[in-house]
């Protein structure tokens, strides 16, 4: 190995020390300084507090920030934006409440299996599509221990609700699909998905204007009336038929469009540096 005959001049070193060179220059000088004790010694004397303090601050923040938990690492690995990771992590505290709701639905399904086919279908159709909506409302409002604190912050509560809904629905779908494996339940389990999506989206639209309790009461009432009307006309199978399914999809898409128009309520409008 040969020694380096060249040394960086004071001006170049000064620019390097305060970080004012371009990326290539910065990297080139750095590579040299790492190998040359002479220039390293010179550079050390040129580093000022104003350069060093921010670096030191960053190091301190890095060191003092607690290690991320498994959920955080998983969400980061999934490329979820950092701000949403924090909201989702906080929502994980509500998982118990959500799990209770899903467990209740499971018990309901097993109970429904004991009924006659006709009643089973009715009970299933009334309740299953409403479950995600109830989870949405629960996530939005009543189960949050720091609701009063969160209410007084500028961040969009609707966005928080949407993220939590995502957690709730992602958690609920596998369990509901699992219910389909119960042999006594003779209903297409996938049929509830689109009506459930439609109801949850309508609920979110209502939540931009109304309280959670009023919104849930409204969607639940309308849905029960729809099912009752279909049953009176002996046309319950319409819900699972292509017409019912596409109508549900239409309602869901329309609701998303309305939500998009009110996007200002969904998104933090400005960020701090």
């Amino acid at each position: 190995m040969t020694t380096t005959p060249w040394h960086a001049g004071p001006e170049l070193l000064a620019s390097y020390a305060d970080g004012s060179l371009d990326d290539v220059g910065q990297a080139a000088v750095e590579a040299h300084v790492e190998r040359c004790p002479h220039c390293r010694a010179d550079a050390t004397t040129l580093v000022t507090r104003s350069t060093l303090d921010p670096v030191w601050d960053r190091v301190l923040v890095e060191v003092r920030t607690p290690e991320p938990g498994q959920l955080t690492r998983l969400l980061r690995w999934l490329r979820v934006p950092e701000v949403d990771v924090v909201v989702l992590r906080a929502s994980a505290n509500l998982v118990v409440a959500m799990a209770v709701a899903v467990a209740a639905s499971l018990i309901f399904a097993l109970g429904a299996a004991q009924l006659s086919h006709d009643r089973q279908q009715l009970a299933w159709l009334v309740i299953a599509p409403l479950l995600p909506a109830l989870l949405v409302a629960g996530a939005y409002d009543s189960t949050d221990p720091i609701r009063e604190l969160a209410d007084a912050t500028p961040y969009s509560k609707l966005r928080v609700a949407l993220l939590r809904t995502l957690v709730a629905v992602l958690g609920a779908v596998p369990l509901v699909l699992l219910m389909g494996l119960v042999p006594e339940i003779d209903i297409s389990v996938v049929a509830w998905l689109l009506p459930a999506l439609a109801i949850a989206c309508v609920l979110l639209v209502l939540l931009t204007r109304l309280s959670a309790a009023v919104s849930v009461a409204a969607v639940a009432t309308v849905w029960v009336l729809v099912v009752a009307a279909l049953r009176a006309g002996d046309r319950l199978e319409q819900v699972t038929a292509p017409l019912g399914q596409s109508l549900s999809l239409l309602v869901a898409v329309a609701s998303v469009l309305v939500l998009a128009r009110r996007w200002g309520l969904l998104r933090p409008e400005r960020t701090r540096a």
Binding site: V87, P145, I146, L149, A150, Y155, P268, R272
Partner: peptide
């Protein structure tokens, strides 16, 4: 304040900071 008991002190404040629109992670 009904604090989320399972959360850490840091995570709790981190969440509220997000609600207060601190979106840059390091800041």
């Amino acid at each position: 304040v009904g604090l989320p008991r399972r959360s850490t002190a840091f995570d709790f404040l981190d969440y509220l900071a997000v609600l207060k629109e601190w979106s840059d992670t390091r800041a």
